[in-house]
Deep mutational scan, measured.
Amino acid sequence: KVILLEDVKGLGKKGDVVEVKDGYARNFLIPQGLAVEATKGNLKEL
């Protein structure tokens, strides 16, 4: 699961917690600054 930092077409809006494949999160969303891993600490910051 990841928390979206920006609106991502076809996935969700900023602040949404979405389930995506590990590779998509690690190789695209997180490096592009579009999402962060949905850890307990990150979820509390919402």
Rank of each mutant, 00 (worst) to 15 (best):
K1R: 15
K1D: 06
K1P: 09
K1W: 05
K1V: 12
K1M: 13
V2N: 01
V2E: 00
V2M: 09
V2R: 00
V2H: 05
I3N: 01
I3Y: 10
I3K: 06
I3W: 08
I3A: 04
I3T: 06
L4C: 01
L4N: 00
L4G: 00
L4E: 00
L4D: 00
L4R: 00
L4Q: 00
L4I: 01
L4W: 00
L5R: 07
L5W: 03
L5F: 03
L5D: 01
L5Q: 06
L5P: 01
L5E: 02
L5I: 12
E6Y: 12
E6H: 14
E6Q: 11
E6I: 14
E6R: 14
D7Q: 07
D7H: 09
D7V: 05
D7M: 07
D7G: 05
D7I: 04
D7T: 10
D7R: 07
D7Y: 12
V8L: 09
V8F: 08
V8R: 04
V8Y: 06
V8A: 02
V8W: 04
V8S: 02
V8G: 01
K9G: 11
K9H: 13
K9Y: 11
K9A: 14
K9C: 06
G10L: 07
G10N: 13
G10T: 07
G10E: 09
G10A: 07
L11I: 11
L11F: 07
L11A: 03
L11H: 03
G12T: 00
G12E: 00
G12L: 00
G12I: 00
G12K: 00
G12M: 00
K13G: 08
K13P: 02
K13I: 10
K14H: 06
K14I: 09
K14F: 06
K14L: 06
K14T: 07
K14G: 04
K14P: 04
G15L: 05
G15C: 06
G15Y: 11
G15A: 04
D16I: 05
D16H: 07
D16F: 08
D16W: 15
D16A: 12
V17F: 05
V17M: 06
V17E: 07
V17R: 05
V17N: 06
V17Q: 10
V17T: 09
V17C: 06
V18M: 09
V18K: 06
V18E: 01
V18C: 08
V18R: 06
V18Y: 03
V18G: 00
V18I: 11
V18L: 12
V18P: 01
V18A: 04
E19V: 11
E19Y: 14
E19Q: 08
E19N: 09
E19A: 08
E19T: 13
E19L: 14
V20T: 05
V20M: 04
V20N: 02
V20H: 01
V20A: 03
V20C: 13
V20G: 02
V20W: 01
K21H: 14
K21G: 11
K21W: 12
K21I: 10
K21M: 11
K21F: 13
D22L: 07
D22F: 09
D22C: 09
D22G: 07
D22Q: 10
D22M: 09
D22T: 10
G23N: 14
G23I: 12
G23M: 13
G23E: 15
G23K: 11
Y24Q: 05
Y24D: 12
Y24E: 08
Y24P: 03
Y24S: 04
A25L: 10
A25Q: 03
A25F: 12
A25G: 09
A25C: 04
A25H: 05
A25S: 06
R26H: 15
R26F: 14
R26N: 15
R26S: 15
R26L: 13
N27R: 10
N27C: 09
N27S: 08
N27V: 09
N27F: 12
N27I: 09
N27H: 13
F28N: 09
F28D: 05
F28H: 14
F28V: 12
F28Q: 07
F28M: 05
F28K: 05
L29N: 01
L29D: 01
L29Q: 00
L29G: 01
L29S: 01
L29M: 04
I30Y: 15
I30M: 07
I30A: 02
I30S: 02
P31G: 14
P31L: 14
P31E: 15
P31S: 15
P31A: 13
Q32H: 10
Q32S: 12
Q32W: 12
Q32M: 10
Q32I: 08
Q32P: 02
Q32E: 11
G33D: 03
G33H: 10
G33R: 09
G33T: 03
G33K: 09
G33A: 06
G33N: 10
G33Y: 06
G33M: 08
L34Y: 11
L34F: 11
L34W: 08
L34V: 09
L34Q: 06
L34I: 13
L34S: 03
A35I: 02
A35H: 01
A35Y: 02
A35D: 01
A35N: 01
A35V: 05
V36H: 07
V36L: 11
V36E: 08
V36Y: 07
V36T: 07
V36N: 04
E37Q: 07
E37G: 04
E37C: 09
E37M: 07
E37F: 07
E37S: 05
E37T: 05
E37W: 14
E37V: 10
A38K: 05
A38Y: 10
A38R: 03
A38I: 04
A38G: 09
A38L: 05
A38H: 10
T39Q: 08
T39W: 06
T39M: 04
T39C: 12
T39F: 03
K40M: 15
K40V: 15
K40N: 14
K40E: 15
K40A: 15
K40Q: 15
G41N: 15
G41I: 06
G41H: 14
G41V: 11
G41T: 15
G41Q: 14
G41K: 10
N42G: 05
N42Q: 09
N42H: 05
N42T: 05
N42E: 11
L43N: 07
L43C: 11
L43E: 07
L43Y: 09
L43G: 07
L43Q: 04
L43S: 05
K44F: 11
K44I: 14
K44W: 13
E45M: 03
E45F: 04
E45R: 02
E45C: 06
E45Q: 06
E45N: 07
L46K: 02
L46S: 10
L46N: 10
L46Q: 10
L46P: 14
L46M: 08
L46R: 01
L46D: 13
